[in-house]
Design a protein around this nucleic acid. Structure first.
Lengths: 370, 370
DNA sequence: CTGAAAGCGCTAACAC
DNA sequence: GTGTTAGCGCTTTCAG
């Protein structure tokens, strides 16, 4: 079969084997080779076999640069995201999207941002419609409205639009890639941080403070990890209490928190929502820290302030901006360069303290690779 | 001047302005525009001015892909690195280089790895010679032999070969980019971790355990950060002791460490060298932990084991593999796509515990963007 | 000093 | 089924 004398010669100069070379070796045209490479059919079984054999043996690697230059069409990605001005966490996420937008522009990847109201399902539905109208090549989003997201993904499936999730997962659907964190383990890390060198047993609280009822499922996973950590400790009988509190009823919220803080056996608090931390911090500061340890989430400005003041002891970074950035990266690399995405891309559980927080903040501005 | 009617039209569809468009707007040929862009001279002052004006106003950005495709030459980078089989830390670094090698191959970037003996200066000098003989377009290395590295960089400068440093910095030279960590702050983080919730004053030790005298300067920066942290605490009089110990004299080393561990006021130990941690861990395990906290560096296998056993309390991750990977990324992006590198790329000071270590280990295998 | 034109490797439309 | 060819945006040679 592989009898063409060029074959060995080309193998020896092992760089830059082009489609042209493969074609010559297989005694077919470059058109045929291209059809084989991209499974575009219309090739006789015989040619297909020879070409594939030669592709394998020659170690041919397509020249991504040429390929990209040629296929000049604009690739369109829609990123669905909450209105960044509503929430600092989602603002960071938005910044990640903007960064991706920037760095993919030179590859003719157009990233259309569809904003919706974080507290308003109809607005989300409207965004969905707008997104589909764009006829995108791919979609990136954080599926915060579970039910509505499910419906949406069904439509994507029908239209064969690949989608990437970040922030929280929806396991029932067939996503291209999910970018997030191991929430169970995240709860365990938080528990561990509260428990460092605690010699006496005590009470530990896990508080979910939200302004809406989104995501409650994903918070319960953190809770499980948190509780399991404490039950796994042998020889120390701790009490774990959990509370679902509502951000919007401030007076009841404050009352409940104050009773909690007055509990003399209270050793530590985990606040699972990034936004809730400042409320607790504020009260804890007034009440007096008294050795009550506080762990919270994310590098929100207020959280950083309380960390620096010593009210918050540790933050766990969910890296909202990198998650969004990486979500788009995965999708764009898939669409542009046909790179197989990582199905479950779990970010490390970053522990932030007063002393290392600046290294994280300055890193943000530095990182700038594609 | 800018009177061509195409001008406004092209500005409005603000993407993809090509050299061709600039040429049309300036009423010159694309050849002339190219000569202006690359300062290749042979252009009349008048054309030059018009072209520059239009380039500025139009926000023209060259298409790096097309440019790279055309100039078909292979870009060669030499990565100088210690023999990976000598040391686990440098093995991780080596893996980062291999990963970069892989992901840049498709862009016709050839990364030549020059290994040298970590404990042998002549071997390093030999590698330098070999590196220069390759006539590389750029060089990446960790300048662990300070003096020899300095000489080398002088030669690079003469030959106009840009170089990127990682791991440790040499501020006297004009590097393209440095990838590393803030060592001063790293010492402070370590101190903080040892000091969490310590109610009583005590003794804290910082130990530099090496098998050679490399890098002693860069360890002293960590020491400064460590000491300054403790002196900055008001209301708690702690004692800080530091020690330079030699890995190779095991019996003396053990003796010294055992006296240290018997100090009843000892509260915590920082081992600044990644390799030294297992020695201390081993002795501490035998001696009994007795509330002596241990902080060490890097995700070496033994360190992870001792972390999981609870002998090591925290590891600070120096991310050797990512540093090397990013070093090559910076250089390759500069050489291939003319992207301006970040001059000082400081990695975050990652705190690793028993509960988050796996999230870091599995992340390593997942990350795979360019 | 300037313009025209070839061609990097690949894709896809088009002809046979 | 298969081969041929135009052309993506840029660089560089060559002719004028």
């Amino acid at each position: 079969m592989i009898t063409n004398p060029h074959f060995l010669y080309l193998l020896s100069m092992n760089d830059k084997i082009r489609i042209k070379d493969i074609a010559k070796m297989a005694n077919v045209s470059i058109g045929t080779v291209d059809r084989v490479i991209h499974n575009r059919g219309e090739v006789s079984e015989e040619s297909r076999k020879t070409v594939i054999a030669i592709l394998d043996k020659s170690g041919y690697k397509p020249n991504a640069i040429a390929s990209r230059l040629r296929s000049n069409k604009v690739i369109k990605i829609v990123a669905l995201t909450p209105n960044p001005s509503q929430d600092e966490y989602w603002k960071m996420s938005y910044e990640g999207i903007r960064k991706a937008q920037n760095s993919w522009a030179e590859y003719r990847v157009q990233i259309v941002i569809q904003q919706f109201d974080l507290y308003n399902i109809p607005s989300f539905k409207k965004s969905i419609k707008a997104a589909l109208k764009e006829k995108p090549d791919g979609i990136v989003m954080a599926p915060i409205f579970h039910h509505e997201a499910l419906d949406f993904f069904k439509l994507c499936k029908e239209r064969e639009i690949p989608f990437v999730l970040f922030n929280n997962n929806i396991t029932e659907v067939d996503y291209l890639s999910f970018i997030g964190q191991d929430l169970y383990q995240s709860g365990a890390v938080a528990a561990e941080l509260l428990n460092i060198d605690q010699k006496e047993p005590g009470t530990y609280a896990i508080l979910h403070i939200y302004d809406d009822i989104n995501n409650s499922t994903h918070l319960s996973v953190k809770e499980k990890g948190f509780k399991d950590y404490f039950t796994s400790i042998k020889g120390q009988k701790n009490q774990v209490i959990s509370g679902d509190l509502n951000f919007t009823h401030e007076s009841t919220l404050k009352k409940e928190l104050n009773t909690l803080l007055s509990n003399p056996s209270l050793k530590g608090i985990l606040v699972t929502t990034s936004k809730g931390a400042s409320i607790v911090s504020n009260l804890l500061e007034k009440h007096g820290k008294n050795g009550i340890r506080l762990v919270a989430y994310d590098l929100l400005q207020k959280n950083i302030q309380y960390l620096n003041k010593g009210i918050i002891d540790f933050l766990i970074n969910q890296n909202s901006s990198s998650q969004a950035f990486m979500g788009i990266n995965q999708l764009a690399n898939y669409l542009v360069f046909k790179k197989e995405p990582v199905t479950n891309y779990l970010f490390p559980l970053e522990i932030i303290t007063k002393q290392n927080v600046n290294s994280y903040l300055s890193f943000k501005s530095a990182d700038s690779q594609i």
